[in-house]
Simulated scan of single mutants.
Amino acid sequence: MKLNFKKTGSGEPLIILHGLFGSADNWFSIAKELEDEFTLYLVDQRNHGDSPQSEDWNYKVMAEDLKELMEAEDISEAHLLGHSMGGKTAMTFALNYPDKVKKLIVADIAPRYYPVHHETILKGLNAVPIDSLKSRKEADDALSEYINNAGIKQFLLKNLTRVDGGFKWKVNLPVITDQIENVGEEVSSEKPFENTTLFMGGENSDYIQDKDKEDIDRLFPNSHLIYIKNAGHWLHAEQPQAVVDTIKAFLKR
Rank of each mutant, 00 (worst) to 15 (best):
M1V: 02
M1C: 02
K2M: 12
F5A: 06
K6M: 11
P13L: 02
L14R: 06
I15D: 06
H18S: 00
L20C: 08
F21T: 03
G22F: 01
S29M: 13
I30D: 02
K32S: 14
K32R: 15
E33M: 11
E33C: 10
L34R: 00
L34E: 00
Y41M: 04
V43L: 09
R46C: 01
R46H: 05
R46W: 02
N47D: 01
H48Q: 08
M62A: 05
D65N: 08
K67N: 14
L69P: 10
M70D: 07
M70E: 09
E73Q: 15
D74I: 13
I75N: 13
S76Y: 12
G82A: 07
H83D: 05
H83A: 03
G86P: 01
K88V: 10
T89C: 01
A90D: 10
A90C: 07
T92V: 04
N96I: 11
N96T: 15
N96P: 03
P98N: 04
P98A: 07
P98E: 03
I105D: 02
I105F: 02
A110P: 07
A110N: 07
P111F: 10
Y114A: 00
H118I: 13
P129K: 10
I130T: 05
S132W: 00
K134V: 07
S135A: 07
A139Q: 02
L143D: 05
S144P: 06
S144G: 14
Y146H: 15
I147L: 13
I147N: 10
L156Y: 09
L156D: 10
L157C: 01
L157R: 01
T161M: 13
V163I: 11
K170A: 02
V171T: 04
V175D: 10
I176C: 08
I176E: 06
Q179R: 14
E181P: 04
E185C: 09
E186V: 15
F193I: 12
F193R: 10
T196G: 09
T197Y: 12
L198C: 10
F199P: 03
D206Q: 07
I208D: 00
Q209Y: 01
K211S: 15
D212P: 11
D212I: 11
D215R: 14
I216N: 08
D217A: 15
L219S: 02
F220T: 08
H224K: 09
I226T: 07
I228L: 05
I228D: 00
N230W: 09
A231Q: 06
A231V: 09
L235C: 01
E238L: 09
Q241D: 14
V243S: 05
V243R: 01
D245S: 12
T246M: 05
I247R: 00
I247K: 00
R253Y: 13
